[in-house]
Nucleic acid binder design. Structure first.
Lengths: 191, 191
DNA sequence: CCACATTTGCAAACGGTTTGCGTCTGAGCT
DNA sequence: AGCTCAGACGCAAACCGTTTGCAAATGTGG
C-alpha cells in the first residue's frame, strides 16, 4: 500500500528559458490563499483541508490520494475526505491533477514562482518522476484552436522512459508475448 | 451502458505536412498481419481475435473495450476476452492504447498509411474525437533523452476543448464551487 | 484424427474512486 | 460566549473498469 517508491528525486529541469522572477507575488498554493478562496465561496476552512494542502506544499512531486493520506497524521482525516478535498482544491485552482495513465490520479500544488503548467518525465520501471520546466505545447493549442473550431483548448502531455537507475537493473529483454507477470497495479507504469 | 455518443465525426486533420504516400505496403492492422504475428509466436488465430480486429478496422476513432464489445455480434465473445485480446493486440503492436484521463482505455488500430503515432482533440462536453495529423513532440523526446539520462523516451499527448456544437449548448457559467452534478462517469471528459 | 497447449466464458475478485447518511463543526449572528 | 445551521466529515457501502482463477472448449502441429 504505502510504497514510497513513486516519489523520485533527480531534479533535471531540462531548460530555463525565461526570466525566473524570484518575487513571490502571492503564490496560489499558500495557506492564506486557501482561506481567501474558501471564504470567497462561503466554504469552511477545516483542519483536513489545511493539512492536505500542507502536505502538498512539502512535496515537490505529484502525489496520489493515498500518498497524501499516508503523509497525514494517523487519524487526522478520512481517505474519503482526501478525495473530496482534492476535488475542491482542484476546482479552486490551487492544485493540478496529473494522469500518468496508470489509473491513479496524482496532484501537485500550483506554485506562483513560474512553476505553473508543466509536464513530467516518468520512469516506466520505478515510477521516479522528473519535473520538466515549463510547457511545450502552448503554440499548438493556438494552432489547433484555429484549425478545429474548438474553444478553450487545453492539453495533457507526459513523457515516459527508463531512468538511469533502472537502465542497469534491466531484467533481460522485455515484452514477452503473453504470460507476462500480473497486470495488477505495481510500482511501475505501463505505457 | 452502450452510449454510442463517444464516437464523434468532424474530420479536421489540422495539417498534412508530409508526402502522404498512398502505397499500402503491408498495413500493420490487416488480417493477414494478424495471422503472421500470431503464428510467429505460436498463438492461436481465433474467432474473437479476428472479430475484434475487424471492428477496430471499421472504426476510425478510438474505441473503449465496451464499445468494441457492443460492436460485436451478440454472444460472439465475452467482455473479458475483449480485454485480453486488446492487451494481446497492443503487445503485438497492431493496436495503440489511448488514455483521455477519464479512467477508460481506448484503442485504435495502427494503420500503415502514415497514420501511425498521432494525437487527438477531445470535446470535454460530448466526447467527440478529432484525429490530429501526425506527431508533434518527437524532437522533444530527443531533447529530453539528452538532458535527462532516461532512455526509450516516449510520450502521451492529447488535447481537449469544447467542440463547435457544444459551444452553443453551453449551460451558462460552469464551475460551481461544490455541489456540482455527480462525478460518476458520463459522456463528458473532465480535464 | 490426436494430443495438448492455448483460449474462452463465467463469475468472482480487485482497486481506485464516489456517494448516502447520520453526526459533527466552523463561522456568522446575537 | 452561546445559538444555529449549512457545509464537512467519518464510515461503510456502492460503483465501475479491469484483471484473474478455473474448468470447459478449441485451434494447430504432428
Amino acid at each position: 500500500m504505502t510504497t514510497p517508491k513513486s516519489t523520485g528525486n533527480t531534479s533535471c529541469h531540462t531548460h530555463c528559458t525565461h526570466g525566473h522572477s524570484h518575487d513571490s507575488a502571492r503564490a496560489p498554493g499558500e495557506p492564506r490563499d486557501l482561506r481567501d478562496h474558501l471564504r470567497r465561496e462561503s466554504l469552511r476552512v477545516t483542519g483536513p483541508r489545511q493539512a492536505i494542502l500542507a502536505v502538498l506544499q512539502e512535496h515537490p512531486h505529484p502525489l496520489t490520494n493515498k500518498e497524501i493520506f499516508a503523509a497525514l497524521r494517523p487519524g487526522q482525516c478520512d481517505l474519503a475526505t482526501v478525495y473530496r478535498s482534492l476535488h475542491l482544491l482542484e476546482d479552486m485552482g490551487l492544485v493540478t491533477r496529473f494522469d500518468f495513465g496508470d489509473g491513479v490520479a496524482r496532484f501537485e500544488i500550483i506554485r506562483g514562482d513560474a512553476r505553473g503548467h508543466h509536464h513530467h518525465l516518468v520512469c516506466t520501471s520505478c515510477a521516479t518522476i522528473v519535473e520538466l520546466e515549463d510547457c511545450l505545447a502552448r503554440e499548438w493549442e493556438e494552432r489547433i484552436t484555429r484549425d478545429s473550431g474548438f474553444k478553450e483548448v487545453t492539453h495533457k502531455l507526459e513523457f515516459f522512459g527508463l531512468c538511469p537507475t533502472c537502465q542497469d537493473a534491466k531484467p533481460g529483454t522485455r515484452r514477452q508475448p503473453q504470460k507476462r507477470a500480473t497486470r495488477r497495479r505495481g510500482p511501475s507504469i505501463s505505457v
